[in-house]
Design a protein around this nucleic acid. Sequence first.
DNA 1: TATGAATGAGCATTCATTCAT
DNA 2: AATGAATGAATGCTCATTCAT
Lengths: 191, 191, 191, 191
Amino acid sequence: MTDDHGRPMRADARRNRARVLHAAEVVLARDGLEAPMNTIAREAGVGVGTIYRQFPTKETLYQAIVAARQRRMIDEATALATADDPGAALFGYFVRVIDEARTKKTFAEALADAGIDIEAGSDDIHAEMLRANETLLTRARRAGAVRDDLTMPELMALLTGASLAAQHGGWDDGLRDRTLAIIFDGMRPHH
Amino acid sequence: MTDDHGRPMRADARRNRARVLHAAEVVLARDGLEAPMNTIAREAGVGVGTIYRQFPTKETLYQAIVAARQRRMIDEATALATADDPGAALFGYFVRVIDEARTKKTFAEALADAGIDIEAGSDDIHAEMLRANETLLTRARRAGAVRDDLTMPELMALLTGASLAAQHGGWDDGLRDRTLAIIFDGMRPHH
Amino acid sequence: MTDDHGRPMRADARRNRARVLHAAEVVLARDGLEAPMNTIAREAGVGVGTIYRQFPTKETLYQAIVAARQRRMIDEATALATADDPGAALFGYFVRVIDEARTKKTFAEALADAGIDIEAGSDDIHAEMLRANETLLTRARRAGAVRDDLTMPELMALLTGASLAAQHGGWDDGLRDRTLAIIFDGMRPHH
Amino acid sequence: MTDDHGRPMRADARRNRARVLHAAEVVLARDGLEAPMNTIAREAGVGVGTIYRQFPTKETLYQAIVAARQRRMIDEATALATADDPGAALFGYFVRVIDEARTKKTFAEALADAGIDIEAGSDDIHAEMLRANETLLTRARRAGAVRDDLTMPELMALLTGASLAAQHGGWDDGLRDRTLAIIFDGMRPHH
DNA sequence: TATGAATGAGCATTCATTCAT
DNA sequence: AATGAATGAATGCTCATTCAT
């Protein structure tokens, strides 16, 4: 991690950055997106000014949270990209994404936003996530685990929809399993 | 339409109520839920006070918009409840709901909220919509058009997810058709 | 009672005026001076417009209420002006004024305002009330019932203070009697 | 002066708190209780937000002003509690209270409010002021400087009434002296 | 003439962001 | 570098007053 001038961040700065990020996740999940910066600062045990040093804007802070999650998802996708069973890999990844959305309120919307720039891929990390997803999809398709006409836009649409619904509706484990079972059946070939 | 005392509303009041409702739909779709009441008032060509006469709270105004849409959906569902082909009726209704969400931004979230109180049904109109949906689902299931283990919670989850995704992602006609094709396949029997 | 053009008021107009005045007294005593015109209108069973026809301003309405009370007080003072015992007349009048203030919240402040323009007497009815009070005072002084150095300014100051305190403090009968006993003792000669 | 967490206030914060308090006194005396917060802020030379940081509510600000005055009065009363002449102490204190009311418009009403909860004494500072007053009264009564049947309720009634009248009527020094002379005579024994 | 719907300036309060300490 | 006090634009809502019905 580097600062604005390319120098590595001081240890305390990096520690503060992590505390802020964590506090923001907690507060956003609890109070929603309208939560004031002061609340986040208090939760983090720092002054507001410290947040603004790392994140010039509330917007920036949110993006950082989302980016962190996307990075985590990318890592999972990457790990699964070489799995033996490409179908199981894709479906397993799908479940992981939905679980993330069920827990961390901010993630689902961000994912939805990412889906929008499918072609654009304006943002680096968005683009990277899309690439990782695409790998999983392509492998599953080639293995015959999903239908041929399931392409990235539809996958992102399904992923996004399920995430948003899960977050908004407070899905429990049972509802998640039963709903995804239906969606997964629709994704498979031979209909 | 009657006022609080059961008297019929004055002509100008009814006209203004409609203008406000319409303006609110336009503004909310354009600027999001954060749009100030003043903007809605300007769009409607009335003073803020006029809005507050009909809707004592911003919240109330939103609920009125949503209620109007839910009523429209209930009407559609009711009309389809006696259709010859129960499967086509359910799937056709599903498409209509998603189209509504694509156009009118406020609807999808409200639908999602409705899904939450599936058992509760606290709100009258929510409950009514759920009942109407349930009729369509039951008929389709009895006709063998959808799988046996597709019950209301899953239907609402799918409906909600697709609506939110369609709204958020700005689905075009093609994406809508292809995505719903997958979901519908998942809903059908024989897996 | 005449209208703006000097013509006698129509019967219904006079009736409405009375209803409004009464409603305003009730509402002001209940909700305080901040009470909205709409509340007064509802209490009176008329539209706001009707109030504004009689009283061009909220201020005007309040003044009318106060004027009515002052008139009543003037009548009492006038009646007592020929009483056999001038001392009893003045003290009895004092009690009546305080009782009015205890019941009708708006009166005390108005009385206080009246006291201010002791010399000015800008307003007709204020001036008239002051004259009536002065008559009672002068007779009592001549009869030796009150000390010689008790003149109008002090009388108004005492009357005003007791009224405001009674209104504000919610005096009960006992507190009224005991407090006025002290004040009256102070007003008597031989100290 | 400490902040909510027990830490000493920053120098600038304390300075601003004082400026706000002072500005509020000035504005309230000039424009009445309806004065907008923005006016107070402008008078204080700070932004509105600064006021709200110290006083979460308009109400709170007013209470702070009143509390400050009550504290000042308590101090005076306490100082007089050991004076050689208990009668002079009580009467002198009475004059001081009235002078405060003549100058600082908000005080009189607060004093009146305090008088109401004579037994209740719900509020700490109210209760403390009442106790201080009671000490002066008891000493004066024991010394034979005031009549035996003058107890706290009557004292508060007289104090309140004179304060409200002085504030409302804009008493000058002469009127104050002559009116209080009458009241004080009424408070003395031997009638 | 009476009604009450419409108006919009005005108010208390919040909160992202800046900057003195 | 961190802190948190200060800022002030922006927002939801109220209510005296006007005016179409």
